[in-house]
Design a protein around this nucleic acid. Structure first.
Length: 178
DNA sequence: GACAAGATTGACT
DNA sequence: GTCAATCTTGTCC
């Protein structure tokens, strides 16, 4: 499901971005996942229905967004690591004045949340509902582009799983490049 | 109730 | 390349 998410678009009000990099996180057999243990206050969204937004605070500073990918009761989510800005770019600059280039606006999990205006208060939103403030819609699938996979970033457990997927040669992906 | 660690980023050398 | 900022969560006493 993670690689299939590449190319889909995330829409928040006027802002729109194309997902170009993701990472998959599973449940009990994935030590690096927030849902590797039992249900807690934080990870309960990961155990819920597919298509919900799971937002968590990273390093006490940033927000990171995930899309729940497994049926209710089976934890699993896909972390959105990078987006390619498509619309509402002026608004994104407003929330990320430090970005030097357009490709810096969403080239990282914490960055894209800031650029799109996603915060902890959006945790649990149904991304597939037409009336939701944050939506996920079908976009341009990376057919002609190469999808590459590799080890996930920033984790200290389960390093062997090559569950990071990105659109190769896309300038908006995060570092280190695959 | 206390404490260690973290799915990161940006500034500085 | 190195390093600090910053605070929530989960685990242990």
């Amino acid at each position: 499901m993670a690689p299939q998410l590449l190319g889909t678009e995330l829409i928040v009000g006027e802002r729109r971005g194309r997902i170009v990099e993701v990472e998959a996180y599973e449940g009990a057999n994935d030590e690096a996942s927030h849902a590797s243990g039992r249900v807690t206050d934080r990870n309960r969204i990961m155990f819920g229905p597919v298509g919900r937004l799971y937002v968590y605070r990273s390093y006490g500073i940033h927000w990171c967004a995930n899309v729940v990918a497994h049926p209710q009761g089976q934890p699993g989510a896909v972390l959105i690591r990078a987006i390619e800005p498509i619309a509402g770019i002026d608004a994104m600059w407003g929330d990320r004045p430090k970005a030097k280039k357009v490709t810096d606006l969403g080239s990282g999990p914490g960055k894209l949340c800031a650029a799109l205006g996603i915060t902890g208060s959006d945790n649990g939103v149904d991304l597939l509902s037409a009336s939701a403030t944050i939506r996920l819609v079908r976009g341009v699938a990376p057919v002609a582009e190469t999808v590459v996979s590799g080890p996930r970033v920033g984790i200290t457990k389960a390093m062997a799983k090559p569950w990071r997927f990105a659109v190769a040669a896309n300038a908006n992906t995060s570092r280190p490049r695959l």
